[in-house]
């Protein structure tokens, strides 16, 4: 027993080494830096200070963090609503399945930055969407699609939708079809079968999709950069600016840690509401 345990650790050691070197050590660096003192021109003076946290908790940054969580959450929920029917459709598309999956993956082959630029062309005040709507007489004034929280959420949804589709697709695909037959056999109409059997049994996919969409969505900064020209901020923007513009590494480090703790806490909270089996299926 103990011997096989040792062997397992031996096999794990390359990845443990990797994780230690590139995850644990950097996090420790960041934690240490966040408690140092900010010198002139971004110099790090190794003198204990909690000033960075004081400003991180100030109303200005708290608002940005809250805003980030809120937008990421809304975007994740929209992703879920869009992705589930789509994933369901792919899973039942028969011979078209692979082509449709390919279409979901194609965007990954192009940089997010480039893809977001194409949305600017669509959503601009003089962009395709506004022009078409105005020509059709549906609106008189161009809609402020960019420079608005709505635009940011569209960008987030667009950017992270495949992350939601793929795990949900995989859970629907793997669902044993005889459960659906059993449900139908017992008198459940298709909608009842969906609500009582399909949805709960594909919940692990929803959970996985939720997490891998929400976590990157909360910290992304290109969407706000491109769509609002920095007018609206997400916590990612603030962290980047702290490091690169203000040369305030202490603040950047403190905000990074704070974000990490918040994400972990919200995931733990989220996990509390899901039962153990779903979690096991997830990992």
């Amino acid at each position: 027993m103990r011997k096989s345990f040792k062997k397992a650790y031996l096999l794990l050691s390359p990845s443990l080494f990797w994780l230690t070197l590139f995850l644990v050590v950097p996090v420790i660096f960041i934690a240490v830096i966040s408690f140092t003192t900010n010198g002139d021109f971004g110099a790090i003076i190794y003198k204990f200070s909690t000033k960075a946290y004081a400003s991180a908790f100030s109303s200005l940054y708290a608002k940005v963090i809250w805003q980030s969580i809120w937008w990421a959450l809304v975007a994740t929920i929209v992703c879920l609503i869009v992705a589930y029917p789509f994933a369901y459709f792919i899973a039942h598309a028969g011979k078209w399945k692979n082509l449709l999956l390919l279409l979901v993956m194609v965007p990954f082959w192009t940089n997010l930055l480039v893809r977001l630029y194409s949305w600017i062309i669509l959503m601009n005040n003089k962009g395709v969407i506004n022009n078409v709507l105005m020509d059709l007489g549906i609106i008189k004034e161009p809609l402020a699609l960019l420079y608005s929280p709505g635009g940011v959420i569209i960008g987030l949804v667009y950017g992270f939708l495949p992350f939601m589709i793929l795990p949900i697709y995989s859970s629907i695909e793997q669902l044993d079809k005889t459960f659906l037959e059993a449900s139908e056999d017992l008198g459940a109409r298709p909608i009842k079968t969906f609500l009582n059997v399909t949805l709960p049994l594909t919940f692990p996919g929803i959970l996985a999709g939720f997490i891998i969409t929400f976590v990157p969505a909360i910290s992304v900064f290109v969407v706000t950069d491109l769509f609002t020209g920095g007018k609206l901020l997400m916590v990612g923007n603030v962290i980047r600016d702290a490091f690169l513009v203000e040369m305030n590494w202490q603040l950047g480090a403190a905000l990074s840690l704070l974000l990490m703790v918040l994400v972990l806490l919200s995931l733990m909270l989220f996990m509390r509401f899901t039962n153990r089996k779903d979690r096991k299926l997830l990992t």
Binding site: S183, E184, D185, L186
Partner: peptide, 28 residues
């Protein structure tokens, strides 16, 4: 199938894994 007055016992049993025994039996 949901309108027919027949019920099936499946080869793989197909008991709903997310429900307990009582809820499985009560489903129909």
């Amino acid at each position: 199938p949901y309108k027919r007055e027949v019920n099936t016992v499946f080869q793989s049993y197909s008991l709903f894994p997310h429900m307990n025994v009582y809820d499985n039996v009560a489903f129909g």
